[in-house]
């Protein structure tokens, strides 16, 4: 009934703008959250001078990065040098077009969905689009005209490509349980089943999360960008806003991996035991909690786990990293697919 202009143009546009802005804000404050949480684990407090309790620190960081000199190395390939950060940054934003945050709600009589688009191959879209970032890494390393950047870039790309395989298989185990590739469909399948998928798919979740940590180049898989590894890997020669793009893309990827973990394994926006405890969740005490809050809490818990990993573990050497990916995670993920497949066959007839 509503005006097709509103339904098909205004609402998606508004959704896109809101999601983009909110994400940018969250990513900026994620940098502060990482510094503070890491500091708390290290018996100190993080930044607390800029603004009350350090809350204006990300804004100061943004100003600093804007004001930094934008260096392009002498013999670097200028166009590709400029293109690489864009190639890394844009896919991580593009992915959010299909990620659902909650249920549909109405604003002034217009139904607004909590996602921008619900395509029926959402998982494939996410995995495909996020692979474009690998081009950015290789091109960034190559365009710097610096053999160590090149080496770092190639290594990083090799790491990302090899960990995508077990990641894909872990996702396949979820698809077996849900029967659909659409992200909204997966969450609804968890609601229909009554449990979050990580209970039957705990092995798949473990593999998924480890691969996710490796995909985002985070500790313990962050050798390509560690200092002891010839300074900075593929982003050594970048400064100013271009460096900021790499940095933001890394945090955005962290958010994407966490969101997918929540949607695939932890029930998206569903409260725990949505059917069993439906009475509790719909009671007047708790029914005011919008589904979006559940989603947010779970994603924040995963981000916290990311930071926790960074604070605790040493890092793998590159060949050991590849060995873990190919010799352990890949066979395990295949075994996981087999087990889940047998389980689904038995339980669903």
């Amino acid at each position: 009934m509503t005006d097709p202009l509103i339904r098909y143009v205004v609402v998606p546009l508004a959704q896109t703008v809101v999601i983009l802005l909110v994400l940018l804000g969250i990513v900026a404050y994620l940098t502060l959250a990482e510094r503070k949480v890491l500091a708390w684990m290290q018996v100190r407090i993080g930044p607390n001078r800029v603004g009350p309790r350090g809350l204006l620190q990300p804004i100061a960081d943004v100003f600093k990065l804007f004001a930094k000199e934008d260096l392009v190395p002498a013999k670097a390939e200028r166009f590709v040098f400029l293109l690489a950060p864009i190639l890394i940054f844009v896919p991580s934003f593009l992915v959010w077009a299909v990620i659902p945050f909650g249920e549909t709600f109405t604003v002034a009589g217009v139904p607004v969905t909590s996602f921008i688009a619900d395509i029926n191959i959402a998982i494939l879209f996410v995995l495909g689009v996020s692979s474009i970032a690998i081009y950015g890494i290789i091109l960034g390393g190559w365009a710097s005209n610096n053999k160590f950047s090149l080496m770092g870039g190639l290594r990083s790309a090799a790491q990302l490509v090899s960990y995508e395989v077990p990641l894909g298989f872990a996702v396949v185990s979820v698809l077996l349980m849900s029967g659909t590739l659409s992200l909204v469909g997966i969450v609804e399948a968890q609601r229909d089943a009554g449990i979050w998928f990580f209970i039957p798919g705990i092995l798949g979740f473990g593999i998924y999360f480890i691969c996710g940590v490796a995909e985002t180049n985070r500790n313990p898989f962050d050798l390509p960008e560690a200092e002891s590894e010839l300074v900075g890997g593929f982003h050594t020669e970048y400064s100013g806003m271009k460096f900021a793009f790499f940095f933001l893309a890394e945090y955005m990827n962290m958010l994407v991996v966490s969101s997918l973990a929540v949607i695939l394994f932890f029930g998206g926006w569903l409260p725990p035991f949505p059917n069993l405890l439906a009475g509790l969740w719909q009671s007047p005490l708790l029914s005011w909690i919008p589904p979006f809050i559940w989603y947010l809490i779970k994603v924040m818990i995963f981000i916290f786990v990311y930071i926790w990993f960074r604070g605790t573990f040493p890092r793998y050497r590159f060949d050991q990293l590849m060995a873990v990916g190919w010799k352990w995670l890949l066979p395990l993920s295949l075994a996981n697919v087999l087990l889940v497949g047998i389980g689904v066959l038995v339980l669903k007839g």
Partner: peptide, 16 residues
């Protein structure tokens, strides 16, 4: 030694 190998927190505990 721990920081070089990547574990960044023992640094703070030992310096305490």
């Amino acid at each position: 030694h721990a920081i070089d190998i990547g574990a960044i927190t023992p640094f703070f505990y030992t310096f305490r």
